[in-house]
Design a binder for these strands. Sequence first.
DNA 1: CCGCAACTGAATGTATCCAAAACATTGCGC
DNA 2: GCGCAATGTTTTGGATACATTCAGTTGCGG
Lengths: 228, 228
Amino acid sequence: MRASVLRLVENEPASLHEDLVNQLRDFIVEDHLAPGIRVPERELCERFNVSRTPLREALKVLAAEGLIELLPNRGARVRQFSEADIRNLFEVISGLDFVAGRFACSRITDEAIAEIEKMHLEMYAHYLRHELADYFRLNQRIHQAIVDAAGNPVLSANYANLNSVVRRLRYSANLVGRDRLGDAMREHEQIVDALRRKAGDELGMLMFEHMQRKCDAVCEYLRGQANP
Amino acid sequence: MRASVLRLVENEPASLHEDLVNQLRDFIVEDHLAPGIRVPERELCERFNVSRTPLREALKVLAAEGLIELLPNRGARVRQFSEADIRNLFEVISGLDFVAGRFACSRITDEAIAEIEKMHLEMYAHYLRHELADYFRLNQRIHQAIVDAAGNPVLSANYANLNSVVRRLRYSANLVGRDRLGDAMREHEQIVDALRRKAGDELGMLMFEHMQRKCDAVCEYLRGQANP
DNA sequence: CCGCAACTGAATGTATCCAAAACATTGCGC
DNA sequence: GCGCAATGTTTTGGATACATTCAGTTGCGG
């Protein structure tokens, strides 16, 4: 499932520590902690049934990942992201999508392509029925599948890491304006087509541009939220 | 200087913890600990004059960054990288170089371009005189300058992070074979030219391909090392 | 003489404890 | 009555102590 940014080997059963880090990350990504407020160590300790030592180690790791920030002698708080932060994140992610598309084509199996095509059709169905939650779930899974198809664990791990930060925004349910969804579907159509033809150069650029447009849409939405 | 992967704000004086992480990272990158061997906590404790608690927190963070790996109940050891690992790392880095080149063009100042041209000329001089150490130092600085010119702290931080892992390899002095240096110089020439013309699309691709070739050269060298 | 098993020693992983710093509240002075 | 300061309480950060686990060594049996 989820591994540290560069975890490659290691078949060991997840240690208590790593477990805790993952739990905490999910807990934050799923928005159980409001951004900006102070995170009391004590409370989290009893919630996860661990003592302070492993919890503090986990907080340090999540701080290094960028999900939270540590204020000296004042504990941790969930990071709050400005529009510039979001843009920066998306730029890096789009770079990873670029390499993902490029190398996925040369390494992907026919079965994986079929699987992605299947997901694509399913997503299209959800799009037609305006089932947004399912639509975005499939969208995420398709992107992750292409990234994973590149057969590069370092890439997959970094991608997942950056995405966990962005996902916290809950932009997903709100990107319906201006028929962004329709555009996105068309872009996905091209992406799947390039993948089918194993046109790596093309796919890389398509995915890069796709993420750029997604970034623009998200930022436009956020700006609308900021001053309504 | 060096910040956590996503550190953006924070003007606080570096906390003891972050200090320790940086010290330890440098200590490892500078090859004071042989890869594969166990990292003795005790020894490091007295070397850095801290107790086990902060040291262990630092180890967890570095493990998340991928520099070391933690074996359950068997302590930490410095990661050993296979050729596949190296390729994976370079692929991700080349993706970051791609976005860096693309956005650097639209955001760079004329002064920064002039600065890079200056470094480029200096590097060329070192190349002609076969001053390898200086050559590679300038090479690093030029790449970092282009990445920084993209004006994206998230990108810069991630780039630095991945590079710290690669830098541990100490391949640099050995890439002289087959006139890789000459090829690299020509590629750099094109890169600086594209930057001058602010041709973002072109620069992105140039930097991507440049890193790919560098990866091939490094891997070829490493393969030669492995079975001589 | 070799191999397996058990025991011992060392080192990790976790929890508790103590000190220091920050925030809040209360009391005193103006 | 209001403001500032000092003290107390809460919380974080660091150290130490205890339990658990792994590896190495030694002894016994085949």
